[in-house]
Simulated assay, not measured.
Amino acid sequence: MRIIRSKDFTAERAWGAEHIATMNGITTRLHWTDQPYKWHINDGQEVFVVLDGKVNMHYRQDGQEQTVLLDSGDIFYASVGTEHVAHPVGEARVLVVESEGSV
């Protein structure tokens, strides 16, 4: 058993992570960042939950780039093949659930 206080979590580099669990090939990690990630497509589905801060999530749908502002408590679901990139507004802490070994 473990209790993680997400608001207290920081990392030495942007997108540094605390591994929480791997269950049946699915990982759950807590990330801290103050920098954008990179455009990517995951190997499978991804659930992206903003726990603290704000994140501009850019994604491509039907060849068009879209952006949505995610606030604390908001969830972004990336289906298979969804190209996306997260841009935090200042510092953010994010819970990511995805296939083990995904980008």
Rank of each mutant, 00 (worst) to 15 (best):
T27R: 10
V49M: 06
M57Y: 02
N24E: 10
S72H: 13
V49E: 12
K38Y: 05
E12M: 00
G16L: 07
G63Q: 04
H84F: 01
P36V: 08
G73D: 05
H31A: 02
H87Q: 14
E65V: 09
F76V: 10
V89A: 10
R2D: 00
E100H: 11
G101C: 05
D74W: 05
G16P: 06
G90T: 11
S72R: 10
E65K: 14
V96N: 03
G81P: 05
L69D: 12
G16I: 03
N42P: 00
I41L: 11
H87A: 06
H87V: 11
K54Q: 13
I41Y: 00
T28V: 09
V97L: 07
E18C: 10
V49S: 14
Q45S: 09
R2E: 02
E12N: 01
T22G: 06
D74K: 15
M1Y: 01
V80P: 01
G25N: 08
T10P: 00
G63Y: 03
Q64M: 13
D71P: 06
E91S: 13
P36Q: 02
I3V: 04
V97C: 08
I20D: 03
G101P: 01
V80H: 03
A21Q: 01
S99E: 15
Y37C: 08
E91C: 13
L69H: 12
G81I: 05
